[in-house]
Design a protein around this nucleic acid. Sequence first.
DNA 1: GCGACATTTCGGCGTCCACCGAAGCGTTCC
DNA 2: GGAACGCTTCGGTGGACGCCGAAATGTCGC
Lengths: 242, 242
Amino acid sequence: MSRPYGRAMTPPLSRDRDFTTLGRALSTPARSTFLNLLMDGSRRPAGELAGAAGVSASTASGHLSVLVDAGLVISETRGRHRYYALAGPEVAAALESLGMVADAAPVSGYRRSRRAEYLAAARFCYDHLAGRLGTALTDAWVRSGWLAGRDELVLTDVGAVGLRGIGVDVDGALSARRPTTRACLDWTERRPHLAGALGAAVGTRFLDAGWVNRHRSGRGLDVTPAGHDLLRGAWGIDPLAH
Amino acid sequence: MSRPYGRAMTPPLSRDRDFTTLGRALSTPARSTFLNLLMDGSRRPAGELAGAAGVSASTASGHLSVLVDAGLVISETRGRHRYYALAGPEVAAALESLGMVADAAPVSGYRRSRRAEYLAAARFCYDHLAGRLGTALTDAWVRSGWLAGRDELVLTDVGAVGLRGIGVDVDGALSARRPTTRACLDWTERRPHLAGALGAAVGTRFLDAGWVNRHRSGRGLDVTPAGHDLLRGAWGIDPLAH
DNA sequence: GCGACATTTCGGCGTCCACCGAAGCGTTCC
DNA sequence: GGAACGCTTCGGTGGACGCCGAAATGTCGC
C-alpha cells in the first residue's frame, strides 16, 4: 500500500485552523489580482475581472469558483452578468492584515508608482476610508476628543454628537451587529484608521454628501472641492499634502 | 511565441499587494500544521516540527525554508539544532484573522474534540492570553473600568493602577514600539481579547507569577490553584466553567 | 579525531493544477 | 424566434511541486 504523496494521511495533532484552502485560494497571481480589485468593497462581473487579470474567461471562471469555495468571495447573478464581491468585512480585514505581512516581504518599490501614490492619498478599504485621508481623519478625531485611545479607537460622547452633526448615521452604527469601531492598520501609512460599523457609516456619509467621489477605475477616491472645504475648515486637514 | 502558462506576463493593473507568496506558504497541510504549532509564540526545532506534521526531516526542511522565504517564520541556529518561530506579532495577528475566515468555511466540528476543548479554555495566542480565560479577563476588566470600549480596548488610568497592582509591567508596555493595546478577535470565542504590548505584558506576568503554566505539548495553558484563587477572588472568574 | 545526531541538499517520482479553446447554457435585444 | 453576448463546463497539455531516501554538511560528546 503506497501513499505516494497527496494529502497528509492523518491530521497529526488536532484539528487546528486549516489554512490550506485559504492559502491555495491566495496562491496564484490571477486570484490575487481579483482580490485586490475587490478589496474596495466593489462588485464586479466575471468578465471585467478576467480582463483585468489578463486571463481567458474560462480560466477566470475557474479561479472565481475557487475563491467562492474558500469562502472569500460571494457571487450574485444579475441578468446575464455574474457579479463577484468579497464575502464580508472579516475577509477584508484578514486580507488587510495579510497585506501588512506581505509588505514586509521584499516587494517594496511600491510607493514609487504614480498610481500607487494616487491610492495612497485616499481610497476605500472595503467599506471605510483609508490612505492618508483615512489616517488623517482618524488622527484629527482623536485630537479633538471624538475618538479615545492611541492605537485602539473608541467613540466618545462628544464624538457621537460631532459625527451626528456632519450627518453620519451614528445610531445605525451603534446598533449594527458588527463591532462599532475597529482600528484597521493602514497598509500604506502603517498607522491605524477607523473601521468597523462606524467607519462604514462615515464612508457612506462622505460618498452621499459628495465630499469624495469614487474614481472611475474603482479603487481610489477623489476629494471634491466641497470635501476639501470641510476637511480644511473643520479639522485643518489637507489630504493632498504629503 | 507561446506562453504556455507560468506566471502572468504583466501585472495587469498595478503592483497591489501580492498574496501569491504568502498564499503558497499557507497552502499545504504540513506548513499549516507548522504555523499552528508556532502560533503560541514558541520556538521549536525542525525535527519536532517534522514529527508533528508526520513528514520526513527533509520534507520538513523544505517546507520551513518556504515559510522563511515568505517572511512568516524566522530561524535561529543553536548548536546542532535549528529553532523556528513566527516572525513577529503581525504574523500572528494575520494568521489569527485568517483563522476567523477559515472558521466560517465548512471546517466545523472543531469544538467537539477533547483537545480542542482544552485549548478553548486557555491558551497562548502568540504572546497573550486567549481562549475563555483571555476573553473572560478582558470582559472583567472592561466591567471594572480598567479597559474602555466595547469592541476596542483602551487602558484607563484606573486600569493602569490596577494592573500595576498585580505586577504587570504597564510602563514597559506603554513605552514599547508596538501598539499598547489591540483587540484580538478570539478564534474560539469569537469575541475580542486583549492583545498588543499590554496583552503580552499581562501574559508574561501570569506565567512569571505562576498563575498559569504552559502545558507540556506547547499550546494550551493550565491554570494553577494560585491562579484560580486570583481569578475568582479579584474578578469572580471561573475559567473552567463552560 | 571519530562516531552519533540534527538538519539540509540532491535526485527522482508522480500528482496536481493553471492554462487555453471549444462547446454548452442561459439572458438580452431586436 | 434568432443572433449576440456573458459565463461556465469540458478535454487536453505541460510545468510546478510535495513526497521520499540517500548523501552531504555541520555540531556535539568523548
